[in-house]
Nucleic acid binder design. Structure first.
Lengths: 369, 369
DNA sequence: GCCAAATAATTCAACCAATAAACAAATCCG
DNA sequence: CGGATTTGTTTATTGGTTGAATTATTTGGC
């Protein structure tokens, strides 16, 4: 029992059950009927009917032709998420890349706008103005499709504090940038670390594994920790800084001030220069992660994905040697399935995920006339 | 919204609100009145009254003299957890130590039984038989106090699989021991890692910090990760194996088969032999933890607690140098407040914590005539 | 071609739990 | 002593789920 510190009233029951029904549809491979939902959730058919009516009226679900079925009986009405309901705006700002995309409730990316340009040459305000331009294009495209944007999320390669303040983004040269104010969108905006959002993108696109470590190897190295389908953000929101885990205590000096950080052995140039060293260093750092967090699946993304075959064996050797539980349960290594868009797609996914997790709030939103 | 995969009905509402009221009383420094609970939770006074009646009838709460108050108005009735309600049996088996204790609902340790003997000389069945003896003494003492035991929890220095199977306990020499079967208690039994339960013990005894890393330095080194008042058990239940985090990749061979594990530099003998080396190695490994999990508080327990003053500066130096966010938010080091009993007390705490988290299930338990 | 069986979805009375508002109880203060 | 004040309880109402009965729509047997 999760005794969170808020009272529960009947309306919370309805809110919970609305979410339960919506998620059941979302996680279902086929198009479930009301009866199937009833069986899957344990709610009665009467209740499911009432909830589904609300979700259809709020254009979160639609009735479709039923999934083919054999045998007698009245045919079911198939239910599915609407592509015409709310959508999410995913944004990304990176060293040489600016992007915006729109995903609909089903998770499909409907529009995608990307600009390649070196953001390090621009002051934050200018970079964010350019991003606002992309966001406006994406919003217009969404509106043309009849998609109402429920919010936006932005991926940045840096440390983000509550309220969307970017404390440090070393590779952009940013420090203490108030992103929501400078971006000035008229949508609720979430700002999060690039690796975190990429991990969530991978969660949505992957094979359903709910618990894994996503490692993103760009110029810096970041990681997103996904536990049971949810992102672990750490005590203060700055988890996953695997790039600065010490691999060789007296090794190469790092620009962070310490010596022997993983980033110096498995960053983009290091991988190109010496893949074997990179793999071994990565393996040592990943062993520490697994010993501490006991994650059974590690997904290599960003710049690591194309190098996967070159890195795999070296990493694996260290894992087998250094992970205490390696004999009891193996650790699986996988390349990421999404490419450069992972973080942007994850960002859009966060927005629609929020609607799917709490449809009641969305249905009760103050409606624009 | 936590859309867990189960339906919610009205009775769940009541269950949740019962827990909410009970926890409000438990977390309150004074003895709150019904009206104070109403104000704290947002439930109406009428609802709180009804819930409190149930909790009093089930002897989880008692009415006491009110906390002194000034001003007009009918005096309040103070509410507090009953010391005569359900209790928890905490058990511990360790290398040279066997223990059992009884904690009442308030968290107070009412009885404590300890045997010092080297368990490595005994086969698991014999050790567990001795523990059963202690458990029986503790149960008898609890019954004499009118405490009904809600369950038992056992701390073991090893890796525990679901169902209470101890896969490996290297320092006991155990492998694949079916503890619940061999122990044969007539209570629901939870088996968990010693460091995990010690971390929870520290959570209950400490200053209220809800998120921290507990490091237990015995012959082996274990850690418990506490996030927001809950234990993080990892993907498969084997988190916190900090003792086998690599500190020096080509360093001293460890009995686990790898080289340069923390345990070889900061285990009990190593601390005694070279405290500076131990502190530095510990600092390197803890930096990795903080970079990965962003924990702001680290509690040093077990054998580290008495050595705290000797270790502190060395650890701190590495943390300041190697933690990426050290400049943004400091990492606090603290000695544990509980001594050798931490795990046993944590175990008892787990049992009463379960009752406090879900009083409805306890109230609806099948009553022994 | 029609009727029985089967499955899907809806309707309706009953029930459970929280709410709001009125009421009763017990104290303080002028 | 009486009004103000705060606590706790009582009562009618509301919201939401349940369970049973009902309606709807198909397949398959005769």
């Amino acid at each position: 029992m999760n005794a969170s510190r808020s009272p529960v009233r009947q309306s919370s029951v309805r809110a919970h059950n609305l979410a339960l029904v919506l998620q059941t549809v979302a996680n279902s491979a086929d198009r479930p009927s009301r009866a199937a939902i009833s069986a899957a959730t344990g709610l009665t058919r009467a209740t499911v009917s009432a909830l589904v009516d609300d979700l259809i009226a709020g254009s979160l679900l639609t009735e479709l032709d039923p999934a083919p079925r054999t045998g007698a009986g009245r045919p079911a009405a198939g239910l599915a998420l609407t592509p015409d309901g709310p959508g999410g705006l995913g944004l990304e700002i990176n060293v040489d890349y600016l992007g915006a995309c729109v995903a609909d409730l089903t998770g499909e990316v409907r529009h995608r706008f990307v600009t390649r340009a070196d953001q390090r040459l621009l002051p934050p305000a200018a970079a964010l103005a350019a991003l606002r331009e992309l966001a406006a294009q994406a919003s217009a495209a969404a509106a043309a499709d009849g998609i109402e944007l429920a919010g936006a999320a932005l991926a940045v390669p840096g440390l983000v504090a509550p309220g969307g303040l970017v404390r440090v983004a070393p590779n952009l040269g940013w420090q203490d940038v108030d992103v929501p104010a400078l971006l000035g969108l008229d949508l609720p905006l979430t700002v999060d670390n690039e690796a975190n959002l990429a991990a969530l993108g991978e969660l949505g696109a992957g094979d359903g594994t709910p618990t894994f470590l996503y490692v993103s190897g760009e110029i810096g190295i970041g990681a997103g920790i996904v536990l049971d389908g949810e992102l672990y953000r750490g005590g203060r929101g700055w988890s996953g800084e695997i790039g600065h885990v010490t691999v060789y205590p007296d090794g190469r000096p790092c620009r962070c001030g310490a010596d022997g950080c993983l980033e110096q052995y498995a960053g983009q140039e290091a991988v190109a220069a010496d893949p074997e060293l990179a793999a071994s260093a990565l393996g040592i750092a990943l062993s520490a992660v697994v010993n501490l967090l006991d994650l059974g699946v590690i997904v290599l993304g960003g710049g690591y994905a194309p190098e996967f075959d070159r890195l795999r064996d070296g990493i694996d050797a260290e894992l087998r040697r250094r992970v205490l539980t390696a004999g009891l349960a193996p650790v699986a290594l996988r390349p990421a399935t999404l490419g450069a868009d992972a973080a942007m797609r994850g960002a859009a996914g966060v927005v629609i995920g929020a609607v799917r997790d709490d449809p009641a709030s969305w249905l009760a939103r103050p409606q624009a006339v």
